[in-house]
Design a protein around this nucleic acid. Sequence first.
DNA 1: CGAGTTTGACCCGCGC
DNA 2: GCGCGGGTCAAACTCG
Length: 224
Amino acid sequence: MGSNNGSSICLDLSIGTLQFSNSCMKQHNKINKLPLIHGSTKMEEKLIYNSQIEAEMVDEMNRVVAENRRLSTMLAAISERHRALRAQVLEIMNSTSSSSSTKPAAKRRNVEGSLAYLEAVNASYKVNCSKEEVGETRPRISRMYIRSDGLVVRDGYHWRKYGQKVIRDNPYPRAYFRCSFAPVCPVKKKVQRCTEDHSVLVVTYEGEHNHVQPLPGDSLNCLR
DNA sequence: CGAGTTTGACCCGCGC
DNA sequence: GCGCGGGTCAAACTCG
């Protein structure tokens, strides 16, 4: 597979609101620095300038609306590409799992696990980016939702369960896992059923693995 | 027999 | 200060 396969997304978001407020400030300054025009009162001059400002503000607003439309179109295109990539992944996983497993249920688990892994990577990437921007040093936390029968989430890493707890307002217990490379690897994860949809697992990853995955391609092997 | 899981006890932070 | 709830510990247990 190509490195990014056209999936790297660069949103050149030039937010209009900031520019908008800046232009308002400029206009405001203009009014205060008005030179006195001979034969007209300062009040009349202000009115003339106010109408000019109004026209410029309408232009600015139109520009922002156009920008908004452009971004919406981009978002739709990105969503479409995401769907296509997801379909490709499913197809690949189906072809690889069919050679290793003949049971349909096992095949489905494989596919779901692989998607879970991909979503985990995606989610942690998103969280990492936002944290780095803010400059935080707290352990990186990412959350994902997976449709699964059991409490087992195949994400390519090897976990050891160290606790289970019944949580308030949720009839299903929360399971606590540590990376089996602990204490070298500080990563933990919590797995819990969603209260609204019991077939959905809420998986919370805490921290970042400081090692490679246990075995090359183990993310697929673990999916059995 | 070793590695992993279960489960009750304990710890600790937070809100009142 | 106290109680509650989430998180962790560790001994007992299970399984391959």
